[in-house]
Amino acid sequence: MHILAIEGLTKRFPTVTALDRLTVTVGPGVTGLVGANGAGKSTLIKILLGLLPVSEGRAAVLGLDAFTQSAEIRRLVGYMPEHECLPPDVSATELVVHLARMSGLPRTAARERAADVLRHVGLAEERYRPIGGYSTGMKQRVKLAQAIVHDPKLIFLDEPTNGLDPRGRDEMLTLIRRIGTEFGISVLVTSHLLGELERVCDHVIVIDSGRLLRSSAITEFTQATETITVEVEEGADALAGRLAELGQTVTPHGRMLLVKVRGPETYDAVRDATADLDLCLIRLEQGRNRIEDVFRGEAAHV
């Protein structure tokens, strides 16, 4: 079953067209929604939650119609907004318990679930302190916790890594991956950075100015572009020449060489070439091309 089925979705605001005949389907797992700021990512999520009316088109979430059954949908999904949305004078526990009850959980169940999810997102003792004193990273964790407290089938995460430092970003991405795999909750996560999504997503959708640019599985990107990175102490040029003679595709990349993998023979060629030239091999690394590079390449071809 499709988690999301969007067909010809159009949303016009008085001055801009946020979504322009968008048609795309999303399966279970972690899906990245990528686009520049203003590409229509947040608008799409709000429409799927039934919070914004649409101009044209249809959308289904978990098999339910987004316009007539939005109350049913909101029972089954979780939402982490992009902006700050936490009252400063209550504690994380109080807020998450309250919001669990707003999702229909009885009082005791709400307490248990809140304690559970706050532990899963990594908030320990500080969860009893008012949110006003939290760091950005902790606030993002609270926002994530409230999105999963009612055990939804699907969550919409709008720019969850916004404002986080590199370490916080890593931790947030790991958490999202766990939610999508261990917790078994499907995830639609937006970002304007392709690079960070490739680590956690099974599938990536790219939109620009409300139009679909591309929708494909992560494996498609990585399989098509598998390379190995070779670094030798010196004599990289000689090695590049030798590999080219052996019929390999080599691109110099600073001090390193990127060699396109054709099959097992590519590894043999690298081994033989370095041995023959008597070079000192200091790195042989399987490098997956970053999705970003793929798009950069595609954009260059256009």
Partner: peptide, 10 residues
């Protein structure tokens, strides 16, 4: 801006 947290629920 806590309202979206309510309105994304039933």
């Amino acid at each position: 801006r806590v309202l979206p947290l309510y309105l994304s629920r039933p």
